[in-house]
Design a protein around this nucleic acid. Structure first.
Lengths: 103, 103
DNA sequence: TAACTATACTACTTTTTAGTAAGTTATTGC
DNA sequence: GCAATAACTTACTAAAAAGTAGTATAGTTA
């Protein structure tokens, strides 16, 4: 238990509270995606941040990374069960933003 | 419309996606709080980050800052309607963290 | 008159996050 | 044998977020 965990909300934020994580998880809600396809959907992300972010999500058990041993490489990302359990939150965040933008 | 807004979720994250914002909003769900009381509830926050963060939340219209012209100063923070509309999200994030910590 | 109060501001430093640009891999198809 | 491919990886730089420590305020109370 680190010092950020006295409040569960804070713990949640350490897992998904960065610029790109929620966006990547959100795009994976629709199902598995090849690395390159997913990356193209995340407009504005650099190659470095994409790889770094999905790897962190993998390390935290929110996404599953499946590598096919072919050349050129093929890698697919899917949400884990733990990742899927964020679905309501991710959709709520998106909906809130959509409503708020309407004013 | 800036470049982060192509997805509403991303827009939401620019409003509340920092270390302390969700935590401060969460603690205000219970009602108005004096500045010092609120700050003491946010364990680990520095004085600077507290002031800076509530002021940003005020600027974004998520909290209301009420100043009483007395000495020593008295300042109260409340959620605005816009801030209150985040209630479900904030509680969901907290609940998700609580469940996840249980494994 | 000096300490105390609650709130905030400032300058400065450190830490974290993000971006750029180039290189690596191993096989295929020309 | 050389370019094209998809998915990284690395070194370096830049920008954003957060932390530390000190200062300001102006009435009230000892």
């Amino acid at each position: 238990m680190n010092k950020n965990n006295y409040c569960p909300l804070n713990y949640t934020m350490t897992l998904i509270g960065t610029k790109w994580k929620p966006l990547i998880l959100f795009h994976l809600l629709e199902g598995a995606l090849r690395s390159g396809v997913l990356q193209k959907q995340i407009i504005g992300i650099s190659n470095k941040m994409f790889t770094q972010t999905v790897r962190e999500l993998e390390k935290d058990g929110l996404v599953i990374r499946k590598v096919y041993p072919v050349v050129p490489p093929k890698v697919e990302y899917t949400l884990s069960e733990r990742g899927k359990s964020l679905e309501n939150i991710l959709r709520s965040l998106d909906e809130w933003g959509a409503n708020d933008l309407d004013n």
